[in-house]
Amino acid sequence: MKYIAMIPARYAATRFPAKLMQDLCGKPVIVRTYEAVVRTGLFSEVYVVTDDDRIEKVIQEAGGKVIRSLKEHHSGSDRLAEAAKDLVADVIVNVQGDEPFTAKENLEELIRIFEEDKEEKVDVASLMEIITDTEVIANPNNVKVVVNKNNEALYFSRSVIPFERAAVEAPYYKHIGIYAYRKRALEEFTLLPASVLEETEKLEQLRYLENGLKIRLSVTNISTIGIDTPEDLKEARKRQALEVF
């Protein structure tokens, strides 16, 4: 199968404007992310999907490929689907532009899900990690997921799920927002109206579930590191400095 990585890269950001263009030890954050994905050697092609001239310029200067997108989309899946419509690919892997330290092992795990899905029943692959800290579990900024015995998503929520009515020690999983999609699933997604649960929770993956599409997850113990605040950037610079030198 042909796997393509796409890195959505919007210039605007509510909490940290222009974060993708911030300097990370000599290169913009988005360039570091792009180069890290290329270095994995997992993908036939890697594209940065952006609506901004500045991001396009730095990626092209780094020798990268850019696909321009419309400025407004209802969801990240809609943005990727628009960008991928003319590409030949079986699976599109979505890597966040503000995560320059995305682990190769996590990306390999997404690919493994599709490689083992011989009957092509899986539409979307994603990751989750076990969480035990009660504050992390209760935090609505951390999306939780419950799965069936095949690790297929039953529901995603910002609320605490499952609710502990009885002390049976059910696991709690935090959803890690790295996705891989069959291209046909992305195309189908864009034809579906935004769903009630999606709008209620502000979680686009619920549109897939409400329409019967399968999301299979795998457990990872390698957390992603996103740059959402200036403080995150300071920590990223410390880590990048260690990798550079």
Rank of each mutant, 00 (worst) to 15 (best):
Asp51Leu: 02
Asp52Ile: 02
Ile55Tyr: 07
Glu56Val: 00
Glu56Asn: 08
Lys57Phe: 11
Ala62Gln: 11
Gly64Cys: 09
Val66Met: 08
Ile67Asp: 08
Arg68Phe: 02
Ser69His: 05
Ser69Gln: 07
Leu70Asn: 13
Glu72Val: 13
Glu72Met: 10
Glu72Cys: 01
His73Cys: 05
His74Asn: 06
Gly76Thr: 11
Ser77Asn: 10
Asp78His: 14
Arg79Ile: 03
Leu80Ala: 04
Leu80Arg: 09
Glu82Phe: 14
Ala83Met: 14
Ala83Tyr: 12
Lys85Pro: 01
Val88Gly: 06
Ala89Gly: 05
Ala89Trp: 04
Asp90Gln: 08
Val91Ser: 05
Gly97Gln: 11
Pro100Gly: 14
Pro100Phe: 14
Phe101Asp: 04
Thr102Met: 12
Lys104Arg: 15
Glu105His: 05
Glu105Gln: 15
Asn106Ala: 06
Asn106Val: 03
Glu109Pro: 00
Arg112His: 05
Arg112Glu: 08
Glu120Thr: 01
Glu120Cys: 03
Ser126Asp: 01
Ser126Val: 01
Leu127Asn: 07
Ile130Cys: 04
Ile131Cys: 06
Ile131Glu: 05
Ile131Ser: 02
Thr134Tyr: 11
Val136Met: 11
Ile137His: 02
Ile137Ser: 03
Ile137Leu: 03
Ala138Ile: 04
Asn139Gly: 06
Asn141Ala: 05
Asn141Ile: 00
Lys144Pro: 01
Val145Asn: 07
Val147Gln: 02
Val147Asp: 07
Asn148Gly: 08
Asn148Gln: 07
Asn148Ser: 12
Lys149Phe: 11
Glu152Asn: 04
Glu152His: 06
Ala153Ser: 06
Ala153Val: 15
Tyr155Ala: 11
Phe156His: 14
Val160Leu: 01
Ile161Ser: 10
Pro162Trp: 03
Arg165Thr: 08
Ala166His: 03
Ala166Trp: 11
Ala166Thr: 07
Ala167Tyr: 10
